[in-house]
Design a protein around this nucleic acid. Sequence first.
DNA 1: GTTATGGTATAACGGTCGTTATGCAAAGTA
DNA 2: TACTTTGCATAACGACCGTTATACCATAAC
Lengths: 199, 199
Amino acid sequence: MASAQNTRERLLDAAEGLFFQEGIAVTGVDRVAEAAGVAIVTLYKHFGSKDNLLREVLARRLAAWTRHWDAALAAATTPGGRLLSVFDAIESFRAAAGATQWCCFLATASERAVPDAGAGDPVFALIRQDTRLVAGRLGDLAREALCADPDGVAASILLLYNGVLSSLLRGEPADPVAHARAVARSVIDASPREPASGA
Amino acid sequence: MASAQNTRERLLDAAEGLFFQEGIAVTGVDRVAEAAGVAIVTLYKHFGSKDNLLREVLARRLAAWTRHWDAALAAATTPGGRLLSVFDAIESFRAAAGATQWCCFLATASERAVPDAGAGDPVFALIRQDTRLVAGRLGDLAREALCADPDGVAASILLLYNGVLSSLLRGEPADPVAHARAVARSVIDASPREPASGA
DNA sequence: GTTATGGTATAACGGTCGTTATGCAAAGTA
DNA sequence: TACTTTGCATAACGACCGTTATACCATAAC
């Protein structure tokens, strides 16, 4: 009845929910399989190992997050609005994904011992990829907006972005996205602009 | 040779280092005892259980963090400086404590399944206590500084505080404390003040 | 010299973990 | 009909987990 694709996604859904609501190490593969309504053997047929399952969950999240941000980016019109689109993306992502606890990449990073010089570990590679995506895009958007100090503006917004995520974990302040967007807007407005020098 | 007090603190030191650098669930009690240079039996003589050990580590961290903030608070002179003292406290705490990965309370919250309505669990009680400390103090300081919207200012600074902590975990932006302090200062400066109406 | 204290080593317990092997049942496809 | 795919149930493995029991060894105080 259930196609292979369907089973895969149900396993990924179950793992995503359990890993980031109860903790990765604490969640056994048996509970993931049970929540997905499949046998443990099927889980291993599909993913080979728990670590591999985690990797695919993170990869899927990264792809979904990128899509949401792309959409929010496309909806923004002004350069300042494009810089603020990260926060719109957080809201739309959380609304669509059912608001899993907080940031799955930071949660994973917090739970796993950082490997020697970050070598090898493909899970940590995904975490770094997420960081590069956010930091890189914010820098590009700040340059797009002709900020005189694009790296400084990008760093401030990345700080606020991280603040929103961990505030969701802490539960306070309530509605961190709205606060972050307001502070970010004032940071952008206060930032001096480069004269748009023609090439 | 080693006094009981000494052994206790060595165990707490070892647990603090391992729990928050490698993860709580992943770190076995044997590794904690080994790192402290004591026998596993001694660990259980002192703390009774792993969960109790974690609880005492968190309590000690909360007390140390409060002391650092108190000191930074005493060193500040202006109302605005008192609001910004959280960030000084982060720096002095990390300089003194050897910069354990990031915030031990958020790390614990991330790794443990949130209990039903937060009932009972003494570990989560400590996490909530930390949140209340920071949020409450920031609100008081904002009122002290006669901000017209003290709760809004406190929320923004708490957001930046959370941002600093998770930025330390992510590793980017580098030097988040300096960025947070700068943004917080502009938030405070831009915030309208209440006329100091006499009682 | 006895007693209390703080610590050790060894070993075991029940449990859970990630993982794999074996064998069987259904369903689609040719 | 025959074959491949996809999934199931059962069981077991080796390892590690948190925890406890038992017995022994120092030191120092009374």
